[in-house]
């Protein structure tokens, strides 16, 4: 069953916590991965791969660069999840 927006944000928060050590409550829709959450370009790839597995979605390399905020990623996953 497709995940809701709330579930996706919660899932991303767990992933970002695991990869970058950021508290889950800091991971909000308006937060930038790079500027607010200490997720650099390489950690972002790890976040994306973990999100792909968790939400059954494919996020090609070309699309990764457009995912600046948690909101961007959430919207992408909502639209593309299997």
């Amino acid at each position: 069953m497709a995940a809701t927006q709330e579930e996706i944000v919660a899932g991303l928060a767990e992933i970002v916590n695991e990869i970058a050590g950021i508290p889950v409550e800091d991971v909000q829709l308006d937060k930038s991965f790079t500027d607010d959450l200490d997720v650099d370009s390489l950690s972002m790839v790890e976040v994306v791969v973990a999100a792909e597995e968790r939400f059954d979605v494919k996020i090609p390399d070309d699309d990764v660069k457009n995912l600046k905020t948690v909101g961007d990623a959430t919207e992408y996953i909502l639209k593309h999840q299997g």
């Binding site: 370009s41 390489l42 972002m44 790839v45 390399d61």
Partner: peptide
Amino acid sequence: QEGQAVFRWAVF
């Protein structure tokens, strides 16, 4: 090189 693409391929 394309850093992110290489990283994803190399790691996973």
